[in-house]
């Protein structure tokens, strides 16, 4: 047990091996994955998020939303994400290509948010933006019993000077949240960015690899079933 040089060599060899196997090999494949160019639409997918949504991604990151929300949809049959309406299809590596920080998350204290921009959560048939403002201001308004904390610090209560702001949201709030007379509640820039980000979250493009799912092999049927999964 005294051959320390051998010990050092062994340690570095093992480190290099796990580094190569786990990181380097994948860096050459998934790490170098290109976008898919769709000739029909003349666009490359995934599409970059609008600038305001990218800024919202930073707000999402700094508030630690990832502590409770995942952003990965598991395939049909592995959990029931699809039955919960968390996405039309499971997430694939290409969905995350352009994200500066990939926050797929490890805890589901709240629902998955990968396709929250696509969900018809905007009850009362309104723009989803207003639903999100109410939800962030007081989650109990939209989701009674939720353990999500309110994010009232993303809103500003201020005196109305001149014309009331067109962005004011107090009309969406119940009586007990109304500001004093002559005041209005407006979302801060960060709230606007965050909601823009949430509304931009949708993975709808059907990448070819999204069809790479196992289908129970019964002859003659497998091809058709795989086609179905492609949609």
């Amino acid at each position: 047990m005294n051959r320390i040089a051998l010990l050092f060599l062994g340690l570095f060899a093992a480190l290099a091996a796990s580094w190569t196997g786990v990181i380097l090999v994948n860096q050459g494949s998934v790490g170098a994955l290109p976008r898919v160019v769709d000739a029909n639409e003349g666009l490359a997918f995934p599409q970059p998020l609008p600038g305001v949504a990218q800024q919202g991604h930073l707000v999402y990151q700094d508030l630690g939303c990832v502590a409770c929300h995942t952003q990965q949809v598991r395939r049909a049959g592995f959990g029931i994400d699809n039955k919960r309406g968390w996405g039309e299809r499971h997430s694939v590596a290409r969905d995350y290509l352009l994200e500066p920080r990939v926050l797929i998350g490890t805890h589901r204290i709240g629902p998955d948010l990968r396709n929250v921009g696509q969900r018809k959560d905007g009850q009362e048939g309104r723009d989803g933006r207003e639903w999100h403002y109410r939800h962030l201001y007081d989650p109990q308004l939209t989701s009674p019993g939720s353990v999500m904390p309110p994010f009232r610090f993303l809103f500003e209560t201020r005196r109305i000077v001149g014309e009331p702001s067109p962005k004011a949201i107090q009309a969406l709030l119940p009586a007990w949240h109304q500001p004093p007379a002559g005041h209005e509640i407006v979302p801060t820039v960060r709230a606007e960015r965050l909601v823009s980000y949430l509304l931009s979250l949708k993975d709808t493009y059907a990448y070819p690899e999204a069809a790479n799912v196992y289908v129970a092999q019964t002859e003659g049927q497998s091809g058709a079933a795989a086609e179905g999964a492609h949609k």
Partner: peptide, 24 residues
Amino acid sequence: DPLVYDERFDPKKAAKTATVAAVD
């Protein structure tokens, strides 16, 4: 295969389905 996320999927058996969508 880096593009397979379902561990039971065998690309050899289902090679045809994984083509890029044809151009219209």
